[in-house]
């Protein structure tokens, strides 16, 4: 038996070179010595858009992620709502029923959970070596990696929030006015940005996805239960009241809840009676923005060292 080994056809040598590309590269090399383009350059926008597009293509091809992301909070709302359906009226503040009370908690908890998981895809990219493609490329700034994740998670959160708001309205919780909805979106986005930053910080500093999942696991539910998502502050033992009024989630939940229940809300409205004093709506939002700023500041040097 004999076989002839045919070498694969040689590639067309002319195609390796591209004159147009050469010109473009020469132009790039010419301004190569200028300082790197900043966070608002077109180069930064281009790379961020491309990385974000990848995340949305992934979502589109794996619609399960989106379906699960919407079904989960809906289940929370239905099941938790049913669980506490027979609680005497008045126990949950001004709410007409528990479902009405719960909506704000589920919105915030869902957004929080999504943002907390933001680091996982980045961690997998690190583990598979895909992230190296970004790291060897002449990115305008490696913050585009962070920005792409944040945009994606924020968009996901808004879709989920819309689903919860819609279902709550259907279940009789009513709808805040337009300004109230705007405030709701602002609160969700602020929380998402702060938590996404922390999660990405973890994704770049923990050794692997096992550790990251462990951290997510021990953070997620305890923060839910130690917040005002499921019951009002007055319902808790004193020590838990202290914990819950230090929990940033409470500062996202209470303003949303207030806006849901009171048409005449304002920045001075008292939304929570913490053990250390009354918290106004404006105060709660200031705390949230402070939390977001703090987590960005905390993660900044870490990201700088790891990826910048």
């Amino acid at each position: 038996m004999s076989t002839t080994i045919t070498p694969p056809t040689p590639p067309k040598s002319t195609a390796i070179e591209n004159a147009e590309l050469r010109d473009w590269k020469a132009a790039i090399a010419a301004d190569a010595q200028t300082p790197p383009p900043g966070l608002f350059s077109s180069a930064f926008l281009q790379e961020t858009a491309a990385m974000t597009r990848r995340l949305f293509i992934q979502l589109q091809r794996r619609p399960t992620t989106l379906a699960a992301g919407v079904i989960q909070p809906v289940m929370w709302l239905l099941l938790f709502g049913a669980l506490f359906q027979n609680v005497p009226q008045g126990l949950f503040g001004d709410s007409q029923n528990y479902g009405q009370f719960l909506g704000a908690g589920i919105i915030v908890f869902t957004a929080f959970g999504g943002a907390l998981n933001a680091g996982l895809p980045v961690m997998f990219d690190r583990e598979f070596g895909f992230l190296n493609r970004f790291l060897v490329a002449p990115l305008a700034s490696r913050y585009s990696i962070v920005m792409a994740s944040a945009i994606f998670i924020a968009a996901m959160s808004l879709v989920q929030t819309a689903a919860i708001v819609g279902l709550s309205a259907f279940l009789g919780a009513g709808l805040p006015d337009v300004l109230g909805l705007g405030l709701l979106v602002l609160i969700v986005l602020t929380l998402v940005l702060g938590v996404t930053a922390l999660s990405l910080g973890l994704a770049f500093s923990l050794p692997g996805h096992i550790e990251l999942i462990a951290v997510i696991f021990v953070t997620n539910l305890p923060l839910l239960f130690a917040s005002t998502a499921l019951v009002p502050l007055a319902f808790m033992p004193p020590w838990l009241q202290v914990v819950a009024s230090l929990n940033p989630l409470s500062y996202a939940i209470e303003p949303i809840r207030y806006v849901y229940l009171h048409g005449d809300w304002g920045l001075g409205s008292v939304v929570m009676q913490a053990p250390f004093g009354a918290v106004t709506l404006g105060g709660a939002i200031a705390v949230l923005i402070g939390f977001c700023g703090l987590s960005l500041a905390l993660v900044h040097p870490l990201l700088r060292r790891r990826i910048a």
Partner: peptide, 10 residues
């Protein structure tokens, strides 16, 4: 296409 954007190709 992603790679091209990472290198800022027009």
């Amino acid at each position: 296409q992603l790679q091209a954007a990472l290198y800022h190709m027009p």
